[in-house]
Structure formats: C-alpha cells, structure tokens
Simulated scan of single mutants.
Amino acid sequence: MDAIIVVDMQIGLLNGPPKHNLQGVVKHINLLTTMVRGRSGKVIWIRHCGKPGDGFERDTEGWSFLPELDRHPDDVVVEKTLNDSFVRTELQNTLVQMALDRVIVTGWATDSCVDSTIRSAISNDHHVVVVSDAHTVSDRPHMDAAAVIRHHHWVWSDLLTNHSVRIATTGELLDEAAV
C-alpha cells in the first residue's frame, strides 16, 4: 500500500513570488491522490500552522488548503509548525500503522518543507518516491526555481538510506498503476 504526503499546499503559498508550475503541480497531485485512493492507499495532507501574523496562521485564509485540490473526508490531515512534517506530529505513527510499501512525497516548498519531509521519511526507514513534477518552489535570489528543483532531485537521488529513494514523474507512476 502507498501513502501520498502532500506538503503545505495551502492558500498562504500564493503570497510572495510565483511558484514554479503551480497549476501543473496541483493537477499532478490530484491525479496522484486519485491513483493512491484507487489502490486502497492513504492520502495525507500536511498543513503548516504558522505564527500569528504570518501567511499560514491557524484559522486564517492562508491556512486553508488550495480549493483546487481534490480532498476527501477520509484523507488524513497532519498539522505541523516546523519545516519537517515528522517533528512533533503524528505523521510517523500514522505511517507505521499503515503497513506501507512506499511513501510518495509532493507539495511545497522543494528546498525546505518538502526536502525536510523527504529526509525524515528516509531517516524513519520508509521507501520514498519523490514525484519530480509534483512539487514546487519560487525562484531564489541565487537560483531560479527550475534549477532548485533539479538540484534537489540530484541530492535526493544520492542520499544514503536503508531503503530506496526514487525520483519519478506523475506519468511514470500512473503508468505503473495501470498495469
């Protein structure tokens, strides 16, 4: 069974510079969550709970998930206050109870919350699949968003782990599920 983790895809991410291929990322996340549900897997939405006054403050508009996302009542929501979705949350306990084959990771932001979540999933001995076209970031002062994403794919593909780390496209995962 698979679990897909969708990191911080909330209205607050619309603040600031544009996010790389955001509409494509949302489309891919919706396709993947449908695939995972169709194979009796679990969809886990990570919600960042920001500090008072920031764009992700609890119970503000920015705290809400993007309305374009296809969320279901039986999906799991895990709230976090740090970059890492595992720290001081129930995420690891939730994953352990599922008898997973792999954890699929998507979301925002490639170089912080997505990266931290991938590294913790690896450290917690999960097989991880990073969906190369289902995470996003803004341009950074020293590097454009596409380069940030390429760099992280390179880093993630060479991490030391007890299990596997795979970089795959949405299309590859959908094709494999169709077999």
Rank of each mutant, 00 (worst) to 15 (best):
V114I: 09
D111M: 09
S116T: 03
V103H: 04
V130A: 08
D75N: 09
D101I: 05
C113L: 07
W108Q: 12
T106L: 04
R119D: 03
L82K: 07
A99E: 11
Q97T: 13
V114G: 07
I118V: 15
S112C: 13
D101G: 13
V78C: 08
Q92W: 12
H126S: 00
L91G: 09
V105D: 04
N83F: 13
P73R: 11
D74P: 00
I118K: 06
D70H: 10
E79K: 03
N83W: 10
D75H: 07
I104Y: 02
T117H: 04
N93M: 12
D125R: 15
R88M: 12
V76E: 10
F86W: 07
N93E: 14
S120L: 08
H72G: 05
P73W: 03
S85Y: 06
T117E: 02
Q92I: 09
V103Y: 06
V129W: 02
G107Y: 01
I122Q: 03
V114Q: 06
V77F: 05
R88G: 03
D74H: 14
C113A: 15
S123K: 13
P73N: 10
T106D: 07
N124L: 10
R88K: 14
V87M: 12
V128G: 05
Q97K: 14
A109P: 04
Q92A: 15
L82E: 06
V103M: 05
S112I: 11
L95G: 02
V129Q: 01
R71S: 07
I118D: 04
V87A: 15
A121D: 05
V105L: 12
A99M: 11
K80W: 05
D125N: 15
H72F: 12
L95K: 03
V87Y: 11
T81K: 14
V130N: 03
D111A: 13
G107C: 08
A121W: 02
K80S: 01
I104E: 01
A121H: 02
A99S: 14
T117W: 01
Q97Y: 09
G107A: 08
M98K: 12
S120Q: 09
D101R: 11
R71Y: 04
M98Y: 10
V129D: 06
D84R: 04
D75M: 08
V96C: 11
W108M: 12
H126A: 03
T106N: 06
V129P: 03
V128K: 00
V103C: 07
V96M: 12
T117Y: 03
H127M: 00
N93H: 13
A109K: 11
C113I: 05
T117N: 01
D101A: 12
L100N: 00
H127S: 11
V128D: 00
V114T: 04
D74M: 11
Q92V: 12
P73I: 09
T117I: 05
V76W: 02
D111S: 13
L95R: 00
